[in-house]
């Protein structure tokens, strides 16, 4: 049993479990599934700076912060209790591609050769860690949601603006992966 749990879970187990978050959050408290809002609540709670966008009763949305704290704990427990001892099984073409840039360690979920504290002070690391994060935080709020709020909750409730947003998420991702990232990884 534990052996099975330790293996990476297939999409047809994980996807439906993630989809179930939608009705669970609705039923336990009438909450719309969405994660990027937590970043806004953190701003509202810590650095509102008198901006109207952050002047709202964030305490009413505190469930969202409990939820992301849970995701953090889940990430911790998932690795501590059921971690997969083997390196990740990645597509051979991805391995060849990353090999050109000297990325050959597939041990962790996050490639330690790209994301580590000393890399933070290199140009490439700064771009991957700081600029990447900034684009995620700025973009999700500008778009009004992220993969959870738009792609999963929005599409589940048949909202066409969410379909537009989801297509743009993918378009931005393809653009970065194919046109820009190869230059960034070269540094």
């Amino acid at each position: 049993m534990l052996e099975t749990i330790r293996q990476p879970w297939p999409w047809y187990i994980a996807g439906p479990l993630i989809g179930l978050t939608v009705p669970i959050l609705l039923i336990i408290g009438n909450k719309a599934f969405g994660i990027s809002s937590s970043l806004r609540h953190i701003c509202a709670a810590c650095i509102p700076a008198n901006l109207p966008f952050f002047k709202y009763e964030w305490k009413k949305e505190i469930w969202n912060l409990f939820f992301v704290a849970g995701i953090f704990l889940g990430g911790f427990l998932g690795v501590q209790l059921f971690s997969n001892p083997l390196p990740m099984d990645i597509a051979p073409s991805l391995a060849t591609y990353l090999g050109q840039f000297g990325i050959t360690d597939y041990m962790g979920l996050v490639p330690s050769e790209l994301f580590n504290w000393s890399a933070l002070f290199t140009l490439k690391g700064f771009f991957m860690i700081v600029v990447g994060g900034f684009l995620v935080g700025f973009g999700t709020r500008y778009a009004g949601g992220c993969t959870s709020g738009h792609a999963i909750m929005g599409l589940s409730t048949l909202q066409w603006p969410s379909l537009v947003a989801t297509c743009c998420f993918m378009a931005g991702g393809f653009l970065m992966t194919h046109l820009l990232l190869p230059y960034i990884l070269k540094f």
Binding site: I71, L109, F127, T147, V164, C168, F169, G173, I184
Partner: peptide, 28 residues
């Protein structure tokens, strides 16, 4: 939804994470 979506997409492909996974990656 369009401009923000594109910007988020660019960031998603760099960090390999949307906001939810960021919290889980730190936990991991």
């Amino acid at each position: 939804n369009i401009y923000g979506g594109l910007i988020f997409g660019l960031g998603w492909a760099i960090t390999g994470a949307c906001p939810g996974p960021l919290f889980a990656q730190i936990g991991s």
